[in-house]
């Protein structure tokens, strides 16, 4: 019983970070109509930014978080228009080209990181939070609690932007009907860049915290891409509330698997569960299918 409670708490704490990684990914898909296969690479890059902030500048990575957001946001701001351009091209299969493009970006980042940083797993070192708390016999490492709190704040800020600002309204409008939003005077290309920038910045920040919890290698990007897929497909693409639920669910599922089966079986369990859920609720993939067709 205690093992179960521990697994649930651990799962929810890590699930918060999965939510933070997936909300931006989900919105970027809604606005750009491209599944960004590089999502996991932004996570790993964010983690390495934390590692290197410590190695090179002696800066505590957590102080570096806002800088991470700005730097990776800038990356996204530059990359977003390229994806938009590929996706809105008039010629053959723009959806497939968009996928190929982001896959290429992911491959480039992965190769570049392996060359520069090597295969050795690294963990983000921080002196700000350490130790762990214990409550009713349940152990909560401080770093995971901080990661969860960060995720709550970041996601709340993101939702505030989306639901309570004029630009956020325009973002939601673009995600629903690009042509119509354009007719209302929205600069769809600019909004796409903005969304992509917020998404990369947010994901890299979450990645830095993830890197403080689990050790990272450039090879792990694919794993986080798959996780983000899991969350977003399960949520039903474009559903923010769904992402909150699915992200926490993924965390819990992972913790339960680790506790009762073994950490090596995480990916397998996750995808068996996704497979079964999609068999029962196929509408989760409907928008995916539409995007690939057109």
């Amino acid at each position: 019983m205690e093992g179960l409670a521990q697994a649930l708490v651990t799962g929810i704490l890590i699930g918060g970070l999965y939510v933070a990684i997936s909300v931006g990914f989900s919105l970027a898909f809604g606005v750009l109509d491209v599944v960004d296969l590089a999502v996991g690479m932004w996570v790993v890059l964010g983690a390495y930014a934390g590692v290197k902030a410590h190695d090179w500048f002696g800066v505590d990575p957590f102080i570096f978080l806002p800088v991470t957001f700005v730097v990776f946001g800038l990356f996204g701001w530059l990359l977003g228009p390229l994806i938009y351009r590929v996706r809105t091209s008039r010629y053959a299969l723009p959806a497939l080209m968009g996928l190929a493009f982001t896959f290429g970006v992911a491959t480039l980042i992965r190769g570049g990181m392996l060359t520069v940083f090597g295969y050795t797993p690294r963990t983000v070192q921080t002196d700000i939070v350490s130790g762990s708390w214990s409550l009713f016999g349940i152990v909560m490492p401080a770093i995971r609690v901080v990661g969860f709190l960060f995720a709550v704040i970041a996601v709340a800020a993101f939702l505030f932007f989306l639901y309570f600002t004029r630009t956020g309204l325009a973002v939601r409008a673009v995600a629903q009907n690009k042509e119509s939003a354009g007719l209302m005077g929205v600069d769809v290309k600019r909004i796409s860049s903005l969304v992509y920038a917020i998404y990369t910045g947010l994901t890299a920040m979450a990645g830095m915290l993830m890197g403080a919890v689990y050790s990272m290698t450039p090879e792990l990007g694919l794993r986080y891409t798959l996780f983000a897929f899991f969350v977003v497909v399960l949520a039903g693409l474009g559903s923010v509330l769904g992402v909150l639920v699915a992200g926490l669910f993924l965390g819990i599922l992972q913790a339960l698997t680790t506790t009762y089966v073994g950490a090596d079986y995480t990916l397998m369990t996750v995808f068996v569960v996704l497979f079964v859920i999609l068999l029962v609720l196929p509408q989760g993939v409907s928008k995916f299918a539409k995007a690939v067709r057109t």
């Binding site: 004029r166 309204l169 325009a170 939601r172 409008a173 629903q176 119509s180 007719l183 005077g185 929205v186």
Partner: peptide
């Protein structure tokens, strides 16, 4: 649009998952 020429696209082009008020707000986006 700023010069006073507006197009209502086929099927209205409403945003289905925005509320009525939000749709109207989008109409005044500029």
């Amino acid at each position: 649009l700023r010069r006073g020429v507006a197009l209502m696209p086929q099927n209205g082009g409403i945003f289905p998952e925005l509320t009525v008020i939000e749709n109207l707000r989008m109409g005044g986006y500029i």
